[in-house]
Design a protein around this nucleic acid. Structure first.
Lengths: 217, 217
DNA sequence: GTCTATAATCAGATAGAC
DNA sequence: GTCTATCTGATTATAGAC
């Protein structure tokens, strides 16, 4: 911030001064990624321009480019984070040992938890259309994850631990679809006193999916 | 490419000749809508240009504009069709009389059937972000539909016809999410002999959602 | 009804001053 | 690190010939 403009300089407010009390955060690549992902999710990746992103960050497009290398790299970084979170589940102990149906139950619960914890990043992942190389890479990785879950469903059905009168392939799709659909409505920041809903949701999903919505008898 | 126009074919200038045997269909607004919706779903609405649409139809952009008034009007027409299909369900007899849980079961089954029958149009509806006035209008209508279903879930829970240990609001979201997620994988044109899957799917969904994936005892 | 040509605008990205 | 100014190409849409 320059102290005073030279005489004759158009009297502009000192560059970068903001409304009283509104301090611009000090950005780095990570915090700008968070801003960008928020915008991507609000408008859709393709409908969001670099201008939109920089405006959301409170700087110009050029300044934004000083921090990030481009729109698609932002996307890649966000999708990497989502995929890392999901694949980490598959390495956890309860996902690798035990009856297939119990491993499946565990993975579903953890999938909901990761979705809650990394909501914007997972949301972005779930909305990909596959237009660019980056999107197709992420879709492939996501399909690989679903493939592991799908195999587990088949195992559980074969072992008689899940109902056999629904095609295992269809069951796996419905299972993934149910979990993923949460990204379309779950919002962690409830202003009212519903904070505990967060911890209840994974168990609610597991119950609903495995036991159904009809009352226990 | 093509040697001669077939007899009776209007003799058009050589421009726009097509590969041998590839006859361009006679387009009207409806058939171009079908083409457009297919492209919208493949790439996303925002990522699809009018150039993409006209190329998919086999005519130039200008010719395409001769038939349709613009990109957003195509979207509106498609969404109208999807919404009409869904709202029609709510007027059917089994959706209006009987126990709440039975009406709900019926609506879910019919929702899957409409999704199958109007797949591209419903798919487009389910992917809206709300960027334009048209999109927000459709989202509002869609929320109204979900609201009716949500009220019915609450009624069923209050009547003891659905389990009460899952928040009715969450149950309604999961229910809608499960049904809607079908649009992301169901494809009516299976080349193999799986044609009957179409009639099985609605019942599979109803069973899975209401009874769960665990085996019957 | 289809075409070529083009207008008007906006996109992602960069140069270079400060 | 941020800015103004600009480049290049794509986008929606139209004009007007055939």
């Amino acid at each position: 911030m320059s102290a005073d403009p030279a005489p004759g300089t158009p009297v502009r407010a000192p560059r970068g001064r903001r409304a009283a009390g509104v301090r611009r955060p000090v950005y780095d690549a990570t915090s700008l990624l968070a801003v960008a992902v928020g915008e991507f999710n609000a408008r859709g990746y393709d409908a969001t321009s670099m201008e939109d992103l920089s405006r959301a960050a409170g700087i110009t497009k050029s300044s934004f480019y000083h921090h990030v290398s481009g729109k698609e790299d932002l996307l890649r970084a966000a999708l990497q984070r989502a995929l890392d979170g999901l694949f980490a589940i598959l390495d956890e102990r309860h996902a690798t040992v035990g009856r297939p149906v119990d491993r499946l139950r565990y993975i579903v619960r953890r999938q909901v938890e990761v979705l809650q914890a990394e909501l914007p990043y997972v949301t972005l992942l779930l909305r990909l259309r596959g237009n660019t190389h980056t999107e197709r890479w992420a879709l492939d990785r996501r399909r690989a994850f679903d493939g592991v879950v799908g195999d587990l469903v088949r195992e559980a059905v074969d072992a008689g631990q899940m109902r056999a009168d629904v095609d295992p392939a269809v069951a796996a799709r419905l299972l993934s679809g149910t979990v993923n659909s949460i990204a379309e409505w779950y919002r962690p920041d409830r202003p009212d006193g519903r904070a505990q809903e967060r911890t209840a949701l994974p168990e609610d999903v597991v119950r609903a999916v495995f036991e159904g919505f009809l009352p226990r008898e």
